[in-house]
Every structure is written in C-alpha cells, then in structure tokens.
Design a protein around this nucleic acid. Sequence first.
DNA 1: ATTTGACTAATTAAACAAAATAGTCAAATA
DNA 2: TATTTGACTATTTTGTTTAATTAGTCAAAT
Lengths: 191, 191
Amino acid sequence: MAKPEIKSIIISAATQYFSKFGFYKTTMDEIAKHIHKAKGVLYYHYNSKEELFNEVLKQELSAVKSELQKVVNSDEDALTVLNNYFFKRLELLHESVNYHETLKADFFEKYHFVEEVREDFAAFERNNFYQMLKKGEDEGVLQFNNIDSTVNMLLMLVNSMEVPLFLQNKYSEYIHTIKELAEFLVKGLKS
Amino acid sequence: MAKPEIKSIIISAATQYFSKFGFYKTTMDEIAKHIHKAKGVLYYHYNSKEELFNEVLKQELSAVKSELQKVVNSDEDALTVLNNYFFKRLELLHESVNYHETLKADFFEKYHFVEEVREDFAAFERNNFYQMLKKGEDEGVLQFNNIDSTVNMLLMLVNSMEVPLFLQNKYSEYIHTIKELAEFLVKGLKS
DNA sequence: ATTTGACTAATTAAACAAAATAGTCAAATA
DNA sequence: TATTTGACTATTTTGTTTAATTAGTCAAAT
C-alpha cells in the first residue's frame, strides 16, 4: 500500500482525458497507453468505462462537496454563509467539467449511469440549504414561511441556472447578474 | 380582401403541423395537401420553409405579447402587476410550443433563422420589466438600487427557467415552487 | 495479485444507394 | 395580372452494407 496506488494513477489519467475530451471521445486504450499499461488493467480494477467515468465524477464532486462543506461549517453569520455558498458553488461547479457533461443527461438518454452520483450531490445540497436556513432561523437573522419550500426554491434556482451557465456558455454574461441575484436573495431572506 | 385570405389559411395549416410535429418533422407537402393546394403556392406566398415557420412563430409570440401587454397596462398596483406578469408569462409560454422549439437554438446551430423573432421578444420583455419596475418606483411601492441591473436579474431568472420548464418537462415539478419564488421576488422588491 | 496482449463482440463511422423533401419554373387558370 | 398547378431538379435525409474502431474478455505470463 506504500507504492503509488495504481487506482489513483488510473483515475488521474482518466480524469485528464475525460475532462478534456468528454466521455464519448475518450477511449480506454488512450487512458491505458497514457499510463504505459495494457487496457486489461483498467478492466481489472474497474468493471466498465461507465464505472470508471463514474469514479472520476465522484471524486470531482467529492472535492466540490468538501469545499462546500467548509463553507457551510464556517462560523460566520448565516447571511454571509449563504452568500458565500452561492459563489463558492458557482465557482467550483464552473470548473467541474465532468459534472457539466452529466447535465446533458436530461436531454439525451445516454447518461443514465450517472444518476446515482447526481442524486447524491442533489441530496447533499438540499441538506446544506436546509442547515444554512435552519441555522439562520435559529440565530434570528433569517426569516421565511416554510423552510422546505424555501429550500426547494433555492434548489430550483441554482439548478435551473446550471444549463445556461455551464452548457450554453452564458457564464460571463450572467456572472455579474448572479451577484445581484445572490444579494437580492439574501436580502429577501433577512428577518 | 373580403374572401378568406390564402395567407391566413396557409398559416393556420402550418401552425397545426408545426405545433404537432415540430419544424423538421413537418413537410411543405403535408401543409399544402391539407389545404388542397399545390406545394408551389406555399412558395408563391413565402420564400422558404424557414420563412413560413418564422411567420407562425411570430404570430404565436404576437398573441403572447398582446396578452402580456394587457397585464402590463392594467391599472392594478405595481406589485400585483409584476406578480400577474410572472404567471401569465409562464402560462402563455407553456402553451407556445413553437417557441419551445426555438429554445433549442442555443444547443443546436440549426435554428439561426429564428434569431430576429426571439430578439424582438426579448426586447419586448426587457421593456415590460423596465416599465413595471419604473411604475412601481414612481408609485413608491417598489424599491431597488439600480433599475437596469434589477431588470437584468429578472430576465436572467425567467429565461434560465425556460429550459427546465419547457424542454426538460419539469413544469409540473417546478410550478409550485415558482409560485413561492414569485412571492419572494415581489416581497424582495417591495419598499 | 497483477499485468499482458491477442482475442471477440459490439458499437461507430464510412460509403454508397434509394427515398423523401425543399425549392423552381414554364405553362395553365381565374 | 395575380395566382395556382404539377412536373421537374437539387439537396437532404434515410436505409443498408461494409470497414474500422473500441469496449470488454481471458488464458497465459510475471
């Protein structure tokens, strides 16, 4: 276990290729060649290309999750945390190019195999928003009628914006307006 | 000019087919057959299939525009008008199936020919939001830092949500939450 | 326990033919 | 004159076959 884990070497190479060329334009042979191994070795450690991509995606989102977790756990006031969360989320997901690919799952049937990771991340975020709102409510800085429907609203907002931002390349067009929106939301939730 | 305008007959048939089968699955022959005319007649009145679709789209959006104009012009207070606008817009565009098709223009290059109509509608909406906010400000019921950036924010929101709502079939999933969002927005803009 | 590389099966791409469809136009009609 | 017709051509799309690529397997080697 001391030597460089073969699995992490594979994942590293796979990440490079998937990130640059996407799932379909990356071949298992390329990945294997890149690490000077035979293709069979990939199949010894992973059952399929889909599973490998899934692992890459999982690690990509895992990094995002841990960064976001830090934001949620920070001891700033709930308003600041919520605002920070929006921007950190945006920034991190903007860089998560394999996640972008999974957004296409809603348009094309081909990406069914990433459902689980996506659902996991969705649940993670739902939980985060809930926590942040709850904390704000307890601190007395936030106010809303119903916490669940407010969470739904925030999730709908951030999710809806992912397609324009990450698939339609409106990031630079929207980024300033998003700042506006975030301020507005936070202000609207203030008690 | 007293007899049934051939152009309106063509548009009516074209609307039926485009609405049901979309741009690519509708043939000029079908439309012509449906009105018991030769295909050539379509080309006598319209230069191309694209131009015909454009006309259909234009009329579809024209109807939406006039409905929305009524909302904007109503003499209710600005808060109510703004709220009404959101829902009327949503309801009308939900039924505008040819407009839905143009949303794909951002993903696929094939729909460049609808740019003008889309831009016209976008400008129309920008103007509406501006008017509504302005009116609200003058009446003293609305308050915001910068009217232009607030308009941008509202446009970004409604536009971003169109893809999930109309292309990804999340209408029924989102409709309740949108009610929540609208209330929230209006509340946030209240002075 | 892991890696190899030749192997098969399945998928995708290329090439071509056939069918469908957009668009044209000279002649007919009203 | 304005409109309509339908046969016509030029493109596009679809279907089909073949070739090439690639995912995935596995017995033998390390």
